[in-house]
Design a protein around this nucleic acid. Structure first.
Lengths: 150, 150
DNA sequence: AAAATAAAAGATAAAAAGGTCTTTTAATAA
DNA sequence: TTATTAAAAGACCTTTTTATCTTTTATTTT
C-alpha cells in the first residue's frame, strides 16, 4: 500500500515534529539512528521533502533538519503524494483499474470504510496535530523490533 | 499490502471457481484474457498454485485449469501465504517490526479493526463460498478499466 | 580567513518485483 | 501411433525500489 520510502518519510517527519525545532535542529544520522532507518536513504528522502517544503534544513555546523510553522501545517497526505505519487493509497485493494460502488471488487465494501477513515485522518490532520496525538497516545515511531515506550 | 502476483492469483482463482469445472477446463490464455492479466506471468503463478494444491490442471487437448472439491475448500489466505509468504497482510501499516496494542504505531488502532475484518474473511471463507458471494453481489474480477457488469 | 560541519547533489549498485520466451512433458484425439 | 494441444519447467530479461558512496556547496565558529 505504502512504499517503504513513504513509511520512512512519515515516521521521520513525525519524529522531527516531536523532537526538533529551529533552535534544536537534527542531523540525518541522529534521526536515522533514532527510528532505525538507513541513513543515506533517509538523506535522499529528506532532500526531496525539503524541496517540496514539507521539512526544512540548514547546512553547516549546528545545521540539520526541523519543521517551520508552515511545515507543521502540511499533512501526511502531502508526504505520500510527494513520495509515492498521487494516491497510491486510494488504489483498489485487488488491483482493479476501476473499482467503486458500481463496479466493486470482491472486497470493496470492506476496504472502502477503512480507506475513508485513514485517508480522512491523513488529509484532515496537520503534521503538528498528528504528532501531538502520537505523543499523547505514546505511539511508537521506531522501526526496529525493540521499540521502547517513552 | 498484497503483491500484484497475489492479486492476480486471487482474482483468477475466483474466476476459475465461477467459470471452470472438471468438465470445462480453462487455458491460461483464456483466463488471462478474461481478467486482463499478462498470460506468461499467470502461467508461472498457476504452476505454483497447482503445486500447492490450490488449483488443478491437466495437460493435453481439452486440458487446462479447474478446481476440485478439495481446491474449493481452500481459502484466500492459503493463496496469499503461498504467493507472498506468511502474512504480508498482517504487516504493520507503517512498517514497524513490532506493532501491537502495547507498542502501537501511529495508526495501529485504525488499521487493526480493518485487518481483523478482511483477514477474517480471507481465513474463514472457502474459495467456493467466496466465489458464490462474488457472483451474488455481481462483483468484478476484471483488472482492466472497462469492466462490464455481468 | 580557515577549519569544521552538515546538507545537497548526483552517480552507482544491489535487490526485488514483474514480465517474457523457449523447450520439455503429458494427454488426447484423429 | 502420430499429430496436436496445453501445461510444466526453467532460463532470461526489464523495471522499480531500496540503498550506498563520493563530491560539492553552504554555513558557522574560531
Amino acid at each position: 500500500m505504502l512504499s517503504r520510502a513513504s513509511k520512512y518519510a512519515i515516521l521521520s517527519t513525525l519524529y522531527l515534529a516531536e523532537h526538533a525545532s529551529k533552535e534544536k535542529k537534527m542531523s540525518v544520522k541522529a534521526i536515522a539512528n533514532s527510528i532505525n532507518v538507513p541513513s543515506p536513504f533517509l538523506a535522499k528522502l529528506f532532500q526531496q521533502l525539503v524541496k517540496c517544503n514539507i521539512i526544512s534544513s540548514t547546512k553547516g555546523p549546528n545545521g540539520g533538519f526541523y519543521l517551520t510553522i508552515e511545515n507543521e501545517n502540511k499533512t501526511v497526505c502531502d508526504i505520500i503524494e510527494e513520495i509515492d505519487g498521487t494516491n497510491k493509497l486510494d488504489d483498489c485493494f485487488l488491483g482493479l483499474a476501476k473499482c467503486d460502488g458500481n463496479n466493486p471488487c470482491p472486497v470493496h465494501f470492506i476496504v472502502e470504510p477503512f480507506k475513508k477513515k485513514i485517508f480522512g485522518k491523513f488529509r484532515d490532520q496537520t503534521i503538528k496535530e498528528f504528532a501531538n496525538e502520537v505523543e499523547a497516545q505514546g505511539s511508537v515511531l521506531f522501526l526496529s523490533g525493540l521499540a521502547v515506550k517513552k
